[in-house]
Write a protein that binds this DNA or RNA. Structure first.
Lengths: 216, 216
DNA sequence: AATGGGATAATAGTATACGATTATAAGAAA
DNA sequence: TTTCTTATAATCGTATACTATTATCCCATT
């Protein structure tokens, strides 16, 4: 009855927990996911676990082979590049549609996120969430929920690689922040095309940097 | 043991059947989907039916409310427009990446599909499939399987509206074919940018035509 | 007639149980 | 040893059964 404790679908609950575990690195790429084990760990049956896995597979977090069960998806360099390419195509649309509708308040809020991102004692998970908030904040005015959801999911699929490769964070973050500020600046000046170009550059550069780490 | 009869996951089987039924209009937009009924119809239990529904929901074919079950997703005009916008962003990427890798054989094959599309006694379902083959044929050289799968799914989500509104097919198809030929022609001439522009135009125009029908 | 309970039916959601498939290990034959 | 076979264990996949939730209907009250 407590609205603060909404009755949660077991499958939805398991889905969230597994997604978190993958993003945070507790479930590593390639590791097998045993239905019985998950069910036992959370004190539920296999049915909702299986439903959660179906959804996770559709979202790309998990790969399953018939009869052999599921494992955390391992992304090749080519697949990472493809995800960034997809983000590029979709996020430029979001930015174009969003910019005319953004208010000074939106910009201020986004500025705040940038400030938080400057902090040098962010754990990778927090950093990744703020990075995501920065981008989605710029798309707030787009009013394209499907595309936004797709982009959020793509971001989620890359997230665990950021949390894994914390080591390369330093230069990656500094450069990222420069690019973030440049994008926000162009947005404030209502320079639509320039902002999109900067976003494109930011994503392309992030892509190469991450792939460089992956193939090393 | 017969390789022509590969042992199929029940959930996968149900998923395919329901997807077909939605695209072909046997399950109409907004109609409720009762788990027990589907299970009884195909002689299976609810478990694989539920898994199929989870996947269909992730793909956008079905909308479910907790405790109340699932129904075939009804797309608003805004959502149709958003899907076309998404296709636009992704398909231009596919075309750009694919074009340099397409061979004369690919073009000939696509030409053949265009020819088939000229036939005036196509049922809406066949037309929709050929239309899909035309587009995906042009992206064959892209080697971006995730994006291709996403685009195919978006196409699938629009498909049932084509089969429903067969009536407006005549002019829609003729104009579509003109645009298809123009796109293929530009591709053959390796005019990358022109082909993308034509594709953009084709998708934008298709979007408005369909929405016009929907809001009528 | 309209509205508001409360019993009943219909349906969703999940656990348990079991058969089917796949992995693992141990022993026999080369 | 290596490879093949066979037995065993682990795990997946699905049907059945039960509980919880939601919808429907009837009747009382206004």
């Amino acid at each position: 009855m407590n609205p603060a404790e909404p009755k949660l679908n077991t499958a939805v609950y398991i889905h969230r927990r597994l997604r978190e575990a993958i993003i945070e690195g507790q479930l590593q790429s390639g590791s097998a996911i045993r239905q019985d084990e998950i069910a036992a760990r959370y004190g539920v049956s296999k049915i909702p676990v299986r439903e959660a896995l179906v959804l996770l597979e559709a979202e790309g977090f998990v790969t399953s082979q018939p009869g052999r069960g599921a494992s955390v998806t391992e992304l090749s360099a080519a697949e990472v590049e493809e995800i960034y390419l997809m983000r590029l195509g979709l996020e430029t649309i979001l930015l174009e549609r969003s910019l005319p509708n953004l208010t000074p308040l939106d910009f201020a809020r986004t500025e705040g996120i940038l400030h938080a991102l400057d902090s040098d004692n962010l754990d990778p998970l927090a950093w990744q969430q703020l990075d995501r908030e920065f981008h989605s904040g710029l798309y707030r005015g787009a009013n394209l929920p499907r595309i936004q959801a797709t982009v959020a999911n793509l971001h989620g699929n890359l997230a665990r690689y950021y949390t894994v490769y914390q080591s390369f964070g330093e230069t990656f973050r500094v450069q990222g922040q420069q690019e973030h500020r440049a994008i926000l600046d162009a947005c404030r000046r209502q320079e639509n095309a320039e902002a999109c170009d900067l976003l494109r550059h930011h994503l392309t550069r992030s892509s190469s940097t991450l792939i460089e780490q992956l193939t090393k």
